[in-house]
Design a binder for these strands. Structure first.
Lengths: 183, 183
DNA sequence: CGCACCATGTAAGCAGTTACATGATTCG
DNA sequence: CGAATCATGTAACTGCTTACATGGTGCG
């Protein structure tokens, strides 16, 4: 699913500016979809051109003006078609695991640093999700879908964290054994 | 980490053809890195041009000829530099979770179909990893790194599967409640 | 006044996908 | 002889990242 479709989806939850859409990616979607301004703004421009959304310039007090986007019927139809056709893929792309495959080429210090770094990232993501689920101001926290996704994220992140915690020492010892046998 | 670097990494485990490298991606790396011929062959051509690997045409009996690639010192150095500099990212990109966010726009049948489809994919991946870990012919199965990655994959995949199994009914009921409240 | 946050965009470039194109060999 | 597997590639395209560029507003 591409970012244009995702923008349509976010706009089904209510009108929003590009900046606000970015925040949804950063908060609610952060653990399963990444998007920056460089993809969002062009996507919104394109969707506007194609009549899937409309824009209105909104002047704000105490803040710079913003462009608020609103879904049209065409956009709603397009999004509904997209989600009924999309295969439920779930892809992982992990430099962390790549590094683990080639860990025998790294020093023990480096490996420990990688583990610590990964664990810190996981904890950050867990906190992100938990704060999003607890936040009262979060206008989406009553939506079953986001609760489900948050729970899924927590379950898999914690499983990964626990696996690392339970296996890192064993792994480092196995690597040292491997090195001794080679030499 | 890009595919060129990954190809260098795979070649540190021994010389191989493009076709064989693809098999490594499909077997050992399948749950954390995806690569097709369309990226592998150009990558190998590029690495050859830059002197990171060398090629030799090998004529085989009972099979078509192949091009076997072999790491040079320059390639080895480049790979070692790459893995000491790479941050251990672990990215998820999940159309499945996107569909769950917008599940209230889908029929119950469709949602059940999505769950079944995702569960089937997870089981397939679990079997893939388990067969790879048990396979006696697998020349990598003594490597601690691949064992660690296999275990990590199994732990997270099973956590995701169990979460789905434990929450799908509850989730579908919550969606129906949400629909009734809206109407 | 400087920093942080709000806010919007463009342009170059890269990495990877998809589709296309070809052909050898084996086995039933 | 057809299907499966082994084997290698190209070319067009897409989708996204990165870097750049700009400016308003609020607060300490």
């Amino acid at each position: 699913m591409d970012i244009k479709t995702l923008c349509l989806g976010i706009l089904t939850m209510g009108e929003a500016s590009g900046y606000e859409i970015k925040q949804v990616f950063e908060d609610a979607f952060s653990h399963f979809y990444v998007a920056g301004y460089g993809s969002i703004y062009p996507a919104l421009a394109d969707l506007t051109q194609n009549g899937h959304i409309t824009v209105s310039d909104i002047k704000q007090e105490k803040r710079p003006a913003k462009k608020v986007y609103c879904l049209t019927q065409s956009g709603r139809d397009t999004f509904n078609a997209a989600i009924t056709e999309t295969h439920p893929d779930h892809r992982v792309r992990s430099d962390f695991l790549v590094l683990m495959v080639f860990a025998h080429l790294l020093s023990t210090e480096k490996i420990n640093h990688i583990f610590d770094s990964r664990l810190a990232d996981i904890e950050r993501q867990i906190e992100e999700i938990e704060s999003c689920l607890n936040e009262e101001e979060c206008k989406y926290d009553t939506q079953a879908g986001l609760l489900f996704c948050g729970g899924f994220g927590l379950a898999t992140l914690k499983a990964g964290r626990d696996y690392i915690l339970q296996n890192r020492e064993k792994f480092i010892q196995a690597l040292q054994l491997q090195k001794e046998q080679t030499s």
